[in-house]
Simulated assay, not measured.
Amino acid sequence: MIDHPLFKDRIKKISEHFVFSKFPLQGEFLIHAYELLEKPENITKAKLNQAYILACASEMYQTYISMQDDVYDMSKTRSGKPCWHLIPDASALAMNDTMFLRSFIIEVLRQTIDESMYTQVINVFNEMYFVTEMGQFLDVYFAQTKNYNDFTMENYDKMSYMKVSYFFMNTPILFALILCNKASEEYYKLVLDLCNDLGVFIQIHNDFTECFDVGESLSRKTTNDIENNKLTWTAVVALQHFNTEQRNIFNECYGNSNPEKIKQIIQLYEEVNLRQLFKEEENARYNNFLQKVQNLPANATPPPDYFMKIFNYFKSYASDSSRFYFS
């Protein structure tokens, strides 16, 4: 059905556009989780091949949602490259291309994943699509309503969990559990509980670094969160600390593309010392995660040391994300 060279060339270009620009962090998480959770004698060439297929499919999935997100946010670059919808031969076909890639991912899984795991794998991918789409809806919805009473930490955490945390932090471990034949409701709940804070903090880190232009954001994506009226961590926390006058200025300037209005928003953030508030948030999220890990029994699946490795790896990622992108 896809024998036509036009289809093959298009799928190749779409699937490789962002994947080859960055370190395959999500895929690495998955492979690492599998090798840690599986008994050494069960790690066969065939099983590793299944793990690598899932890792590649996960990376293509990240490209899929990144391409859609860039269209919604009118972004210009990601991973140091022009966004897909700005490529000359993409343009009006950009959204169709994302659907093309989504179907291709499912077809790859259909042809390659072992029958004994196929249903579980597809269920996780379907949930990824659904959860991420709900997160994308919340992202756009809160931006369009311009009701800053909705800019709460509860709404922000929910949106970030759905849009980022579930697919980025949780699913690599869920796939590893499926590969090891250890998937269960109990283990799923443990993973979701422990990894949610780290996943949400990925989005918090992005919001902060993109707003203040501090080093590299985790996505290396151009941003226009202020002018697009986005529900961000920076806006939520600043609103919690504004006095009446500052709140009035925020209401007037937020969601405005005028460069002077954007500067006024940044100035408001500086006035409430948002940089220090970010450090406090970072420490609180990390400490909460560490406390949960320390409370795990030694025989937990995944074990406490695995979550600590994720924790340390993520800290290195957040502190210097430039190491995870290729020239």
Rank of each mutant, 00 (worst) to 15 (best):
V121H: 04
F167Q: 06
N206V: 01
E252R: 15
Q246P: 01
A57V: 00
L48M: 13
S160G: 09
I202K: 00
E38K: 13
E271K: 15
E281N: 14
F29G: 03
R110P: 02
Y148A: 05
P172E: 11
F167A: 07
N288G: 07
D305I: 03
R275T: 11
A318E: 13
I53H: 00
A55W: 02
T301Y: 00
I65Q: 06
M95Q: 15
T152N: 12
N312M: 09
T234S: 02
N283G: 09
S219T: 08
Q294I: 02
K45L: 09
F242P: 08
F7G: 01
S66C: 08
E28Q: 14
E281W: 09
Y188I: 13
I226N: 03
C195Q: 08
A318I: 11
P88W: 07
F23R: 14
S165R: 01
F7H: 11
E270T: 15
L239T: 00
V124I: 08
F242N: 05
T98G: 07
Y148T: 06
E280Q: 13
V164N: 03
I105C: 10
E41I: 08
V71P: 02
F289K: 01
Q276C: 06
E133I: 15
V108P: 08
I266V: 14
Y161V: 06
Q26I: 10
S15A: 13
L54Y: 00
K163F: 08
P304D: 04
N149Q: 15
K182G: 11
V140Y: 06
W233N: 04
R285E: 08
V121I: 15
I14N: 03
L218I: 15
T77W: 01
F168M: 15
I226M: 06
R110K: 14
L194G: 02
F324A: 12
E38Q: 14
I265G: 02
N258P: 10
F307H: 13
E41L: 10
W84L: 04
K8M: 09
A300L: 03
N251V: 00
D213N: 09
F307V: 13
R323T: 12
M162E: 03
E216Y: 13
M169K: 10
T232H: 03
N283D: 12
A235H: 03
F23A: 09
K221M: 12
M99P: 11
I31V: 13
V140K: 10
S15Y: 01
V236H: 12
I310F: 08
Y306A: 03
D225S: 07
S91N: 10
Y156S: 05
Q294P: 12
P297L: 09
D9K: 13
G215R: 03
